[in-house]
Design a protein around this nucleic acid. Structure first.
Lengths: 186, 186
DNA sequence: GGGTATGGCTAATGCTGTTAGCTTTTAGCT
DNA sequence: AGCTAAAAGCTAACAGCATTAGCCATACCC
């Protein structure tokens, strides 16, 4: 009986991939174990519970998202940066719906939870976008919340198939970027 | 052994109340049955499955939301209507987080699903808000998606405790209403 | 009052997540 | 090289969940 050579990172990576394929809700310990060529109880040597697994998937997703955002924003500012951030976030959620879903139901109980740090990096990128606009400093937090709410809401609705009408969703998204840019500029 | 006198509406109403109290994910058939003074299998005389129960809760929530929106928009237009709709939706989600959560994970398989009709009534109210602005008809669908995404995203993030910074969330929300109003006016 | 649909029940099944305890491998130390 | 001990896998078992099957009592209708 050879050993599988797993570690927490490998388990989380497999779980994230599985979540993207079959949906986060269908990522069962048994299915994940099968995917890894292992029995379900063995997973508990690497991950302490399913809730822990979900939290780790969320950290992975936020870290990846922070990375691609940072890359996408390199050398851009103003409307270019806004559009790049928006398209990057949308693309990430479309490509990795399972991972992203893990970031929604979070209860960051402890303040030094890695999920907080990973989320902060995403927020930093959004702040960088806003830095390209001349905003009253008192409004920056409001604008940040606007971006988060809007991108998050759009992503969730699109992922849930919530846009029934046959008008092109891409077109709506680009229109939305223009709307926000104009609002932040004036 | 006297009879409990249940019907589907009573079961759904109890489930919705329970969801608001303990969270939708914790609404188990056993807990719901206990709340109703009945054993779990008896619920299947009124509801065909837990998925069916969730769908019915969603219909209830969307219907209620459509009603309060209609009331709130009576006699208002322009920025007044926008602000009323926004505050009403936010208040509903804060008061009924469990019900609202049921509206998120929906797969409206059949086109005559009651959930579609209930959702359409909410959309109608949002359309009525937009009617108060002079928009290019081609942009109306985009603006509708903007409102949905923004309100939904804000509600989800607030319900999840996602706004960590200590700036007042109410203030951000009002700022956001002003932002959208300005953008739709120009 | 008698017949029937209905709403409740108990018992049982299958699928979860999770724990306990055992065994083998692997890595580290001398 | 060989010994030791931690780590990583396993089987067996349990508890909680949704759900089904089948039974019995109740309430309505004529």
């Amino acid at each position: 009986m050879p050993r599988a050579g797993l570690d927490p990172a490998a388990v989380v990576a497999a779980a994230a991939g599985l979540a993207d394929e079959v949906g986060l809700a269908n990522v069962t310990m048994g299915l994940l174990a099968e995917r890894l060529g292992v029995r379900a109880p063995s997973l508990y040597k690497h991950v302490s519970s399913q809730a822990d697994l979900n939290r780790r998937i969320a950290v992975l997703a936020l870290t990846e998202l922070g990375d691609v955002l940072r890359d996408a924003l390199q050398g851009r500012s103003g409307r270019d940066a806004l559009a790049a951030a928006a398209r990057t976030m949308r693309a990430y959620v479309v490509e990795h719906p399972g991972r992203y879903a893990a970031t929604i139901r979070l209860n960051a109980d402890s303040p030094d939870d890695p999920v907080v740090a990973a989320g902060a990096r995403v927020l930093d990128s959004l702040s960088a976008v806003l830095a390209g606009y001349k905003l009253d400093p008192a409004d920056t937090v409001h604008a940040l919340r606007l971006l988060r709410s809007l991108f998050h809401g759009f992503a969730v609705l699109e992922a849930a198939g919530g846009f029934e009408m046959d008008t092109d969703v891409d077109e709506s998204f680009e229109w939305l970027i223009g709307f926000v840019d104009r609002g932040l500029t004036s």
